[in-house]
């Protein structure tokens, strides 16, 4: 059945009704939530709150895009939260060290820091991909292992203490800056989402990822080089998680091993799943995942503004997650199978 969906998806995207069917209730829920909150609390559409929502939604969306890609290929990436932390720490540390060696040369300092941070993400992604594709260990277990190891390395580097010493311009001119009224993170997220949507629809890599997730055996028979593309999905996921770590670091102004963590990892999976990515692989679209990340962020923000006890908030997230997937599953059952 999965292969059928894959094969049919390019044509399906044309018909309006099927788009509504694929995206599901999410946009409607989002509009409802925004309208309801605007009516209840004028603070909700205040510029400060909107910027806050955009910033957080962008960070989550970037991680969730990578996570979605891995899940579409039939895997899992539990290590993203830990990669966010490691990239943050390594970026800050590298910048501090470079700044001490070459004081004043900001371009060099920032370039080295960002490169080191992204490098960490790519490295963890390569390890994940290698173990999954070449050694054939289940993605869940591999990333469970690298999650623990990556978090450990992040803490080892810092001893749990925030790392300072980044150039002023990186924090004020990049992390906390706004262009055209939008925070930096939103611009980066938009670029990432556009690139990922393009990759999913118009590149061989994107189509192969669907093919691998839909039916590995069929993909092998069709001549798809499975291993390279699986490694690719994990590398993209690691790099995007690292990018989020760098953005967070620039925004907060210090590198911290407490960024990301289990919360970010679980939220990224939640965003992907609520955004219609099937854990069976082969199904899912980046743009819906981004909308779902926005939805989750606004939901959390709304619960805060409504003074719902922060301890009770996970219950809402849990119920919505299960309900979204259950609805999806039930609607799929009621559709006739060809």
């Amino acid at each position: 059945m999965n292969t059928m969906l894959v094969a049919a998806s390019p044509h399906r995207s044309i018909s309006l009704r099927s788009i509504a069917g694929r995206i599901g209730l999410l946009p409607a829920l989002l509009v409802l939530l925004v309208a309801g909150m605007s009516a209840v609390d004028p603070q909700f559409y205040g510029i400060i709150n909107v910027l806050n929502i955009l910033r957080n939604a962008s960070l989550l969306a970037i991680v969730a895009c990578g996570q979605a890609l891995v899940i579409i290929a039939g895997g899992f990436d539990l290590s993203v939260g830990a990669v966010v932390a490691l990239a943050s720490v390594v970026t800050a540390k590298t910048m501090a060290v470079t700044a001490a060696a070459f004081p004043g040369s900001n371009a060099l300092i920032i370039a080295s820091g960002v490169a080191a941070g992204l490098g960490c993400g790519v490295a963890v992604g390569l390890v994940n991909g290698f173990c999954v594709a070449k050694l054939k260990v289940s993605g869940f277990v591999v990333t469970l292992g690298t999650m623990s190891a990556t978090a450990g390395v992040g803490l080892m580097i810092t001893n749990g203490i925030p790392v300072y010493g980044m150039p002023e311009i990186f924090v004020k001119g990049f992390g906390r800056a706004q262009a055209f009224g939008l925070p930096t993170a939103a611009h980066v997220a938009l670029i990432v989402i556009l690139m990922m949507v393009f990759a999913q629809r118009r590149t061989l890599f994107g189509r192969y990822v669907y093919a691998i997730g839909g039916n590995v055996d069929a993909a092998v028979v069709s001549g798809v080089t499975i291993q390279r593309h699986i490694v690719g999905t994990y590398v993209v996921s690691g790099a995007l998680a690292a990018l989020t770590g760098i953005l967070l670091t620039a925004q907060v102004g210090s590198g911290q091993a407490s960024f990301g963590g289990d919360r970010m990892m679980l939220q990224s999976i939640a965003a992907a799943v609520i955004g219609g990515v099937s854990l069976r692989g082969g199904v899912g679209r980046i743009e819906v995942v981004a909308v779902s990340a926005l939805f989750l962020t606004i939901l959390g923000n709304a619960l805060n503004l409504l003074h719902v006890d922060s301890r009770l908030q996970p219950v809402f997230l849990g119920v919505i997650m299960v309900a979204a997937v259950a609805l999806d599953e039930l609607s799929r059952r009621s559709k006739p199978r060809v």
């Binding site: 679980l266 939640a270 996970p314 219950v315 809402f316 997230l317 849990g318």
Partner: peptide
């Protein structure tokens, strides 16, 4: 994962 969040809450 859903009941994880619910039970924590």
């Amino acid at each position: 994962l859903g009941s994880y969040n619910i039970a924590i809450g």
